[in-house]
């Protein structure tokens, strides 16, 4: 194991620092995921509207966020807001904003797709049973939508967790940055540390995302 440089993890506070970095990454992504799940459902419902103005605006929002690389969005949120409005957002706040905007857009599109995939006759049957618009949405359409959404939402959440590795570009010291700091601080004495440290980072990302997959599997079983 010596060859992979795992020993650098046990020097000083290194392992605690790495876990601290993981916590920063999870804090940013999970707050953003929380916002995205709620806002995304509203966004998705809006996107199915026939109103051309709403359609154009939601489409513009979705495409803007989707076309721009997350890195550009992070720079706009962190440095751009200072330049244009004089706001001094912290790196972490800017990250949460960008991830929430991104997650809401993607989530909205997923919800829209799931809603539109519910066959027409489901709405008609609900109406035939005497349910009004709100009731049929809540009791007939939404449960089916959620079931269809689950796999894609899990995919989105894990993608959001992993993409937090970009926030180091706006000065947020998350897990990957701590990993690079540890590797660099030891680059003379333990030149192989990159292998061991990155391997550990890989395992930690996996451990962070795996419970979410397990939860999804359990839910899918329960709902089927």
């Amino acid at each position: 194991m010596q060859a992979l440089g795992f020993e650098v993890l046990w020097k000083g506070k290194n392992f605690a620092r790495l876990m601290g970095g993981l916590w920063v990454a999870l804090r940013i992504s999970l707050i953003a995921v929380g916002i995205s799940l709620v806002a995304g459902v509203l966004m998705g419902a809006l996107m199915t509207r026939k109103n051309p103005l709403i359609k154009a605006l939601t489409q513009l929002y979705l495409e803007t966020v989707r076309i721009m690389p997350q890195m550009v969005l992070l720079f706009l949120a962190f440095f751009g807001t200072t330049r244009w409005f004089g706001w001094n957002l912290s790196g972490e706040t800017a990250s949460v904003i960008v991830f929430a905007l991104w997650g809401t857009a993607e989530m909205g599109d997923l919800v829209r797709g799931a809603l539109e995939s519910i066959p027409r006759h489901q709405y008609e049957s609900a109406a035939a049973l005497g349910l009004d618009g709100k009731q049929s949405f809540l009791y007939v359409i939404l449960p089916q939508t959620l079931r269809r959404l689950l796999p894609q939402v899990i995919n989105l959440i894990t993608r959001m967790i992993k993409t937090t590795s970009l926030v180091l570009m706006i000065g947020v010291v998350e897990m990957l940055k701590v990993a690079q700091q540890i590797i660099e601080a030891n680059r003379m004495k333990v030149p192989n540390a990159a292998f061991g440290v990155y391997l550990t980072v890989l395992v930690l990302y996996f451990l962070a995302c795996w419970p979410i997959s397990l939860l999804a599997k359990a839910l899918e079983k329960r709902w089927s």
Partner: peptide, 17 residues
């Protein structure tokens, strides 16, 4: 820099050096 040893880096105690 926090990862450019020996100009600016973070040691094992989390201190900039």
């Amino acid at each position: 820099f926090s990862d450019k040893n020996p100009f600016g880096y973070v040691d094992e105690n989390g201190e900039y050096q």
